[in-house]
Design a binder for these strands. Structure first.
Lengths: 113, 113
DNA sequence: CAGAATCCCATCTGATACTG
DNA sequence: CAGTATCAGATGGGATTCTG
């Protein structure tokens, strides 16, 4: 689903949107970050089953897409915070629609992790 | 992104939603089918660059997900029509939100194919 | 017309181990 | 704490050829 950053735009805009939200963990990560700034391991704890490697790459891609911001506090031990950007905020209606649909039509099995 | 039909539900519902809409061509195919029943090659003509193989697999998956219906007319030459199901219709608000966001925020490059 | 069958490679993801 | 590095397996998507 992810391509070289500009192949994305060569196709239709809808595809670019899915590219931003469609990653394996991106939507769920965004839900959490939309609620408030989160630290790296905090996100990790929220998503059991998500490896550090995946967490890193998904966050990095979203940062590159400009939907989240990464703030490093130069201290020991290190502290890094991830927050939503104004651009990321524009995804809120879409994400809400996504959650609405999911809750209404997929629910049968489990609640949100 | 696609897994064994029940691994999907083991995770969160949002993931299942993305699984239905997130395929490379699914969203765009759904937009077209939502507008009205379409034949196989008709869809193919609407999406230049989409191979028959991809068209087939994406349609089959969406059929399995219950969002579209496949109707075969037993005649020569064959005629197969794809239409939206009531369940598929429930995706309309989400798809609309998707298109809205995409048009508003990705537009810079190209119009919809 | 509407596909099925193969082949094949580029990613994506996951598991594991190591580090400033 | 917040990553990086490496490796291996699974998946996705495309090209091509064949057919009822």
């Amino acid at each position: 689903m992810r391509k070289q950053r500009h192949e994305v735009y060569r196709n239709c805009p809808v595809e670019a949107a899915l590219d931003i939200v469609g990653g394996k963990w991106k939507a769920i990560l965004l839900f959490h970050i939309l609620e408030g700034t989160k630290r790296f391991n905090e996100l990790g704890r929220l998503l059991p089953g998500l490896t550090q490697r995946m967490l890193t790459t998904q966050l990095r891609e979203m940062e590159a897409d400009g939907v989240i911001a990464r703030t490093v506090y130069p201290q020991v031990p290190p502290k890094v915070e991830y927050s939503i950007t104004p651009f990321g905020r524009t995804l809120e209606p879409l994400l809400r629609e996504l959650a609405l649909w999911a809750d209404a039509h997929v629910k049968p099995r489990l609640g949100e992790p």
